[in-house]
């Protein structure tokens, strides 16, 4: 073996940037917290959207016909007739007239039992259930229904719940915008923190940077060193942040969180979107971190010479 020739040491080359023993830890913590909050915000925005979707689908897949009592007309009979007409419409699954007893039952919580005179005229409702697809595609001719009921001479009005659906959608949209804005703000904050840390790290390592420069290192070579380091930091803090976000979300859906807290926190729904979002979080955190570190270091280096 000993042929007199020197042997290069085995193993890989040492890292050019010295490990920042312990100095990265607070930064790691801040980044993990930011990723955690960003995940919660994203899950929340997604949850609001999902909830709004469910509610509006429910609202839009039914109609309510209200028959007002009119002197000289049999309201019960009108309700039955209205249900018949509605059932005959395309896109309608079924229509159920509610009787006077149903109407009284609805009033009981407010007025108490038996406090109403028997001859008090009450409006009656007809619940119309639509085929969800037809409802979604707007194939139910609501104005036709209204016209037919008018032609029968009854005092009926058709309510397609669009007012409520709009309100729900608006609220969900607000929640979603809020969530996405938070996400953007947190990403910006993370980028700024990383840029600050990268600059500090560059300044703390002037000796190394100078040595590299004088050995002929290009700026982009040095920027790449920082980019790699901060990518890894982003990925690691992203993993921790996303893991905690998942745990909190699962905790909420298991009912472990207090109700008033659960209101703000997203429920865990093990659907592909959530899994992709949490899985992508470390990568996105790494990319955000790498890009902002690279830009910060490159702009700092440009100022030299």
């Amino acid at each position: 073996m000993d042929d007199g020739l020197p042997r290069p040491p085995s193993g890989g080359a040492g890292r050019l940037l010295p490990p920042d023993a312990g100095r990265d830890r607070p930064l790691f913590l801040v980044a993990a917290i930011l990723v955690f909050l960003a995940c919660i915000a994203a899950l929340g925005a997604r949850g609001a959207w999902q909830q709004a979707q469910n509610w509006t689908t429910e609202l839009e897949s039914s109609l309510t016909i209200q028959i007002r009592p009119v002197e000289g007309r049999d309201t019960d009979a009108d309700a039955g007739r209205a249900a018949e007409i509605a059932s005959a419409m395309p896109g309608v699954r079924n229509a159920t007239p509610r009787t006077r007893d149903d109407a009284l039952a609805l009033l009981t919580p407010w007025l108490g039992e038996g406090n109403l005179p028997d001859d008090l005229p009450l409006p009656l409702m007809v619940e119309v259930e639509l085929e969800p697809r037809a409802a979604r595609e707007g194939r139910v001719a609501i104005s036709d229904l209204q016209a037919q009921l008018d032609a029968e001479g009854m005092a009926a009005s058709v309510d397609d719940h669009s007012r409520w659906a709009r309100a729900v959608r608006r609220a969900a949209g607000t929640a979603q915008t809020l969530g996405l804005s938070l996400l953007a703000l947190l990403t910006g904050a993370a980028a700024a923190v990383i840029a600050f840390a990268a600059r500090a790290s560059l300044a703390a390592r002037t000796d190394v940077i100078d040595a590299l420069h004088l050995c002929g290192a290009e700026d982009r070579f040095i920027a790449s060193l920082f980019q790699r380091r901060f990518f890894m930091l982003g990925v690691k803090s992203g993993l921790v942040g996303a893991l905690f976000a998942a745990l909190v979300s699962i905790g909420v859906s298991l009912g472990r969180a207090p109700a008033d807290m659960a209101f703000f926190l997203p429920q865990w729904a093990a659907n592909p979107f959530e899994l992709i979002l949490l899985g992508a979080a470390p990568l996105l955190a790494g990319l955000t971190s790498a890009v902002s570190a690279r830009l910060a270091v490159a702009s700092d280096l440009r100022g030299r010479w």
């Binding site: 080359a13 050019l16 040595a211």
Partner: peptide, 18 residues
Amino acid sequence: RLLNHLSVFDNVALPLRV
């Protein structure tokens, strides 16, 4: 101006590496 966290070999190899 040697890099104290790198081995002698890595220090000498630095110009080639960069």
